[in-house]
Computed example of a mutant assay.
Amino acid sequence: MIQRQIVDTINILCDKFPVIALTGPRQSGKTTLLKNTFPDYQYVSLEDPGNCDFAHSDPKGFLKLYSEKVIFDEVQRVPHLFSYIQTIVDTRRQMGKFILSGSQNFQLSQNITQSLAGRVALFKLLPFDFTELKNVNLLTNDYPDILIKGAYPALYDRQIPSDVFYANYIQTYVERDAVELIHIRDLRQFRAFLGLCAVRVGQLLNISALANECGISQPTAKAWLSILESSYITFQLPPYFKNFSKRIVKSPKLYFYDTGLVCHLLGIKTDGDLVYNPLKSSLFENLIVAEFHKQNEHRYQHMDFYFWRDSNGNEVDLLRPHAMTFDIFEIKSSQTIMSDQFKGLKFLQEIAQEAVAAKTLIYGGNEIQYRSHYTVLGWNQVSNY
């Protein structure tokens, strides 16, 4: 079993909060992590119809069965259970009493905010990050391997072929969430929408254009995109708004948490399919931006990330702010380092001046170079930086 980075922090905070909540996409390994990390806890899945019905109809009686430490999986299926859990933790003041897990971020977060604010430590478990794969020698030196394969645990633990895994994942989980959360009836149109999102990976998000191309209204496109975000399929990278005396772009960029899913939607199955694909650079950018997000969640760092672009097309792919400064990153899929790859970093440095701390080029090769004004970082070294 591949060790997850987030485990150490969960163990530490389990002694400091009465409730631990773990969310993340379906099949990201939440249940496996909790069962292996907390073998002395009772495990109850609320996906089970009997458990779900019992918790709905008699929440007090249901909770009496679990007077000691317990894991409630897919707890968002019984929303009113949160209020009863609040009463119990406020009365007993026992740390680590409940561990809650769920795969629908919106519902879980909403219930936590309403009932358990200040009582819960919330974690997100995403598909494997580079560090986790590197620790067991599963991260190669060639980025197309992981970009196309993806990073869901089943791909490594059970050796399921990527195309088989993602075809079933979309039908079993993504479409199921769409039907359950907003009652989508035309799944063919929703699949088309998902494919159009894949084509727009790493690009500025234009809801109007996306809706028009899919043949749906803008409110529907927003609702469907919300489903993909709450199910941890896609996320948006916001622009950095500080002007620096230039007109800047204010639309977010669209990314997927897992590039294997994007490649499946785009029909990319081999390195050869990727080489001449016009989205190759965008997919590599998605791989790196998603990795920053994974490391941020798995190390419990609570950082924010942005991109920057002005109206003239000058751009920096990723900004990582600190208190008074920020680090900037340019992301290039090429395995050859060229001088013009630094121009975005140089441009923003010139207008932001001392606000820029570190300037880094992340490229498709494996070397690390420390130049006079820049750091050059191989793609598989991102987890160390």
Rank of each mutant, 00 (worst) to 15 (best):
L100T: 00
L63C: 06
N314C: 10
V179P: 06
K149I: 12
Y66P: 05
Q159P: 04
A221G: 03
T37P: 11
E132C: 09
P18I: 02
I160F: 03
Q218W: 03
T87H: 10
I10S: 03
F235W: 10
G150E: 06
R119T: 01
F292Q: 00
Y374F: 15
K246W: 04
G195Q: 07
P59V: 07
F244A: 02
Q86C: 09
T140K: 09
M95F: 12
P219Y: 09
G29P: 07
T31P: 09
S115I: 02
G195W: 04
D53G: 02
T23A: 08
A117Q: 14
V44P: 00
Y66S: 10
P18M: 03
H80N: 15
T140W: 06
K69F: 05
Q110L: 15
E74L: 07
H298W: 10
R191D: 11
V44N: 02
A357K: 14
F329Q: 01
T375F: 02
C214R: 03
L261C: 09
W379F: 12
A290W: 00
D145C: 08
S226I: 07
Y240R: 05
V75P: 00
D145W: 03
V174G: 01
P238N: 13
A55Y: 00
I268D: 02
I368F: 13
L261P: 11
A290V: 01
E285A: 05
H183L: 09
T9V: 08
A211H: 08
M324L: 11
H293E: 15
L22V: 12
L279D: 02
K60H: 05
T234L: 13
H264L: 12
N105D: 14
K269E: 15
I362G: 01
Q104C: 05
W379H: 07
D258L: 03
V199A: 13
L194C: 11
V164G: 01
Y370D: 12
L33A: 05
S230Q: 13
P144S: 02
Y300M: 10
G29W: 01
Q27A: 07
G61K: 07
V382M: 06
R185D: 08
L187M: 15
L63R: 02
L196K: 12
A290I: 01
Q369R: 12
N111V: 01
V164I: 15
I71M: 03
F98Y: 15
L181Y: 04
L65N: 13
Y232A: 03
F123C: 12
N212V: 11
A192G: 04
I216R: 01
N135D: 15
Y152I: 12
N137L: 09
P59H: 00
H302A: 12
L125Y: 05
T32H: 10
F165P: 08
V120A: 06
N366P: 12
E213M: 10
A121Y: 03
P219R: 08
L22M: 04
H264D: 06
Q218L: 05
V78G: 02
